[in-house]
């Protein structure tokens, strides 16, 4: 388990928990909710993190990413 801002680019993650108010509903609407699987397209350690979720790319600020707990999904 780690927060999304620490996820490695190219890895696949499953969202475990999102902590926040208001804006979390926007994440839900975009398909980012507990249980859903996302691919980390870009994470350079600074600047936004780009995820691919349900076929579309979403850029998230690091502050938002820090509040999202994920676990890495091994490809198999």
């Amino acid at each position: 388990m780690l927060t999304l801002d620490l996820a490695k680019p190219g890895s696949k993650v499953r969202i475990v928990n999102i902590d926040g108010k208001g804006w979390v509903q926007r994440l839900y609407q975009m398909g980012l909710l507990p249980g859903s699987i996302a691919e980390v397209v870009a994470n350079y350690g600074v600047g936004p993190i780009v995820l691919r979720v349900m076929g579309s790319e979403v850029a998230l600020g690091r502050g938002i990413a820090r509040r999202i707990v994920v676990e890495e999904v091994k490809e198999g």
């Binding site: 804006w23 936004p48 790319e57 979403v58 850029a59 600020g61 690091r62 938002i64």
Partner: peptide, 13 residues
């Protein structure tokens, strides 16, 4: 409260 203004943006193909 947010440390940096947050980005939450869909990036279409």
């Amino acid at each position: 409260k947010e440390p940096v203004p947050e980005m939450l943006l869909e990036i279409p193909a």
